[in-house]
């Protein structure tokens, strides 16, 4: 039971990271391999604000997310906008390149020593039934849950949400409705970066802060997104939860070192058996 609950807690974080990936893919048709590195930079920013400038946790948290949003917009504006109509391979190579560049620059600035990152709430675990849980973990789950809910409501019921869904289905038709598609894409990148940033800040206390911290998370997020079908937002969350539990089960019953291997096996199996994921469905073919 403990294993499953702990898995679910991490699953929420993977789900959040997967949500960022899926959102960007769904709206702009770009698979963002640099997602994890963008989140890592955001986490470092929050660390700088927190430890070096001595800001309170939530102020640093909020400012770091603001930074994430700006960072996402800049990445879109400077890099991705130019390749929006290029072949997918170009886009993919560009995000892979960004992955390496961001990682390298972060290494130059912050070095390669892992540092410990504070939790939002300190405190010993308490017991609910047979399960031990800390207040910080509850906070993680609660925050993720609220973010997902807010996000869902925006996407479903607001004007910008409607514009996002429309732009992802047909860019040209959206433009003809008077939607500034480039603004919509920019907000998708901003929100995607924020979601990733939250995932980064939430995981940092568990795995230490360093420039490679998001690699594993990114892979887990990809696995979650793939399970969810890569275009379904609820699918990304469910996928993230499944991956979290799966990873924990593998660590416990097989070997912690092998969890990555088994995660890749899971991705491969899913792509073989059900490439559209559990909630994916076929992506609508766009008429050009």
């Amino acid at each position: 039971m403990q294993i499953i609950v702990s898995g679910l807690i991490f699953g929420f974080v993977y789900g959040l990271a997967a949500l960022g990936l899926v959102l960007i893919y769904k709206t702009t048709d770009i698979v963002n391999f640099a997602q994890g590195e963008m989140a890592m930079v955001t986490t470092f920013m929050s660390f700088v604000l927190l430890s070096q400038l001595g800001m309170p946790y939530f102020v640093a948290f909020a400012l770091a997310l603001l930074f994430a949003a700006l960072f996402g917009m800049i990445i879109y504006h400077v890099f991705m906008k130019r390749v929006q109509t290029s072949p997918p391979l170009n886009q993919m190579v560009l995000t892979l390149g960004l992955f390496l560049v961001i990682n390298g620059i972060a290494g130059l600035i912050w070095g390669y020593h892992p540092r410990s990152y504070p939790e939002a709430f300190a405190g010993d675990p308490f017991q609910i039934g047979s399960v031990f849980i800390t207040f910080n973990e509850l906070f993680m789950v609660g925050l993720t849950f609220i973010l997902m809910l807010v996000f869902y409501l925006i996407f479903r019921y607001t004007r910008i949400g409607l514009a996002m869904r429309a732009s992802s289905q047909d860019m040209v038709a959206a433009e003809l409705m008077g939607i500034k598609v480039s603004h919509v894409f920019m907000s998708a990148w901003a929100i995607g970066a924020v979601l990733g940033g939250v995932a980064g800040i939430m995981t940092a206390p568990f795995i230490f802060l360093n420039t490679t911290m998001m690699m594993d998370i990114l892979i887990m997020a990809f696995a979650g997104a793939v399970i969810g079908g890569f275009i379904s937002l609820p699918g990304a969350v469910v996928g993230g939860l499944i991956v979290g539990v799966y990873e924990n089960l593998v660590s416990y019953y097989i070997a912690p070192e092998l969890k990555m291997v088994y995660t890749f096996i899971l991705i491969i199996v899913i792509l073989y058996v059900r490439p559209q994921g559990i909630l994916g469905g076929p992506k609508f073919v766009k008429k050009v």
């Binding site: 409607l162 429309a166 289905q169 409705m177 008429k287």
Partner: peptide, 20 residues
Amino acid sequence: GRRVFPLLSVEENLRIGAYQ
């Protein structure tokens, strides 16, 4: 070729027409 937004409902398609 019409180019309605296939995954949006009829109502949402109309709403998006009034985006401006």
